[in-house]
């Protein structure tokens, strides 16, 4: 402090404010919101792995007719309950051998299977190829989930927007309906619907969607309520933009994070309900396979032929875990505050 540094005099020329214009420059390059979300999502390793897993499962489901080695519903009673076998590889548990009375026996030989036949995941009690059934079953379960979620969106989002946007008496009335629907346990509604409608894909979708939209409607309404008061929406209203235009141009984009995140939690829920209904026998009717019917069939034979249960159980759990974790990842990506504080 005491020593005064020696500095040449010309360094002390005043610059004045000629380059003051630079001062508003922001240090880091700015990203748009969506770019930022994507960047955060791809930084999250768990979310990326889940996204990859889900993508693989979806692709396999779409390509089911090409990928599945057999017709999933083709019965071949002579080939019933064969254990998994993968080519001629001699991997325990995948070599076609089965424990019978304490001895490991080649089940394929016993069934007089032609040389070279093998079922990677074995066959069920009607001799149907389990791998093919699982591929088709996953496909069906995903279709149920996607359709139910779509119906959810189609009812829940407009309902929430209208309720939140209109406010006042309309809102009160619409919220009363939401309250009543949500105070009835959704499972009961779903089961009642399933009993009344003919079992099948459409009924399951309707049954799941009839209670599922409530959560979405609630979230969207709350968000719309907040957005309504935002300056830019007020400005758009003052300028006389038509409601439809405000909804599509300003509301939906800002609601998208809420909607996407909620969707990610609706999908596993729908998959669960399908599996549950099929498991108790009022879901997808035979002979079609879904993850739920496969589990139900597998459970009956589980004690003696555990492989029939394991495969669908693992696939179902993986889908549930991956969608849940991806939902988490998306929430963190959309709202970094939720994970950083």
């Amino acid at each position: 402090m005491e020593q005064i540094p020696q500095i040449p005099k010309e360094k002390f020329r005043l610059i004045h404010d000629e380059n003051n214009k630079d001062q508003e420059k922001i240090g880091t390059p700015s990203l748009t919101y969506m770019q930022d979300v994507r960047r955060r999502l791809f930084k999250d390793k768990v979310a990326v792995v889940c996204l990859a897993l889900i993508s693989i499962i979806v692709v396999i489901s779409i390509l089911a007719p090409i990928i599945a080695p057999h017709n999933p519903n083709a019965q071949q009673v002579t080939m019933s309950n064969l254990p998994p076998k993968l080519g001629n590889l001699n991997i325990p548990g995948m070599n076609g051998y089965q424990n019978m009375g304490g001895h490991m026996v080649d089940a394929y030989k016993q069934a007089d299977a032609p040389k070279g036949t093998f079922y990677i995941l074995g066959t069920d009690y009607l001799g149907r190829d389990l791998l093919s059934r699982i591929i088709y079953g996953t496909r069906l379960s995903l279709v149920v989930a996607v359709l139910a979620t779509l119906v959810d969106l189609l009812i829940g989002v407009p309902y929430g927007i209208v309720s939140g946007w209109k406010g006042g008496k309309t809102d009160t009335f619409m919220q009363r309906i939401v309250e009543i629907v949500s105070s009835i346990p959704n499972l009961i509604v779903v089961i009642l619907m399933m009993i009344i409608l003919k079992p099948g894909l459409t009924s399951i979708v309707i049954a799941i969607a009839i209670t599922g939209w409530v959560t979405m409607a609630r979230l969207v309404r709350a968000q719309t309520f907040q957005l309504k008061e935002q300056e830019y929406i007020l400005a758009a209203r003052t300028l006389g933009e038509p409601s439809m235009k405000i909804a599509t141009k300003h509301l939906i984009p800002n609601l998208s994070s809420t909607i996407i995140i909620q969707t990610m939690f609706t999908i596993p829920n729908a998959i669960f309900f399908e599996a549950f209904l099929s498991f108790i026998g009022i879901g997808i009717p035979a002979p079609n396979a879904s993850l739920g019917t496969l589990l139900s069939d597998g459970q009956k034979a589980f004690r003696f032929l555990p492989y029939q249960m394991w495969a669908p159980a693992i696939i179902l759990s993986v889908i549930m875990i991956a969608t849940n974790l991806l939902g988490d990842g998306l929430r963190d990506a959309f709202d970094p505050q939720s994970s950083e504080n």
């Binding site: 002390f12 005043l14 610059i15 380059n19 003051n20």
Partner: peptide, 11 residues
């Protein structure tokens, strides 16, 4: 950068 009296040495 915000100083009206800034000199070269300041930078």
């Amino acid at each position: 950068p915000r100083n009206a009296y800034a000199m070269e040495i300041d930078e």
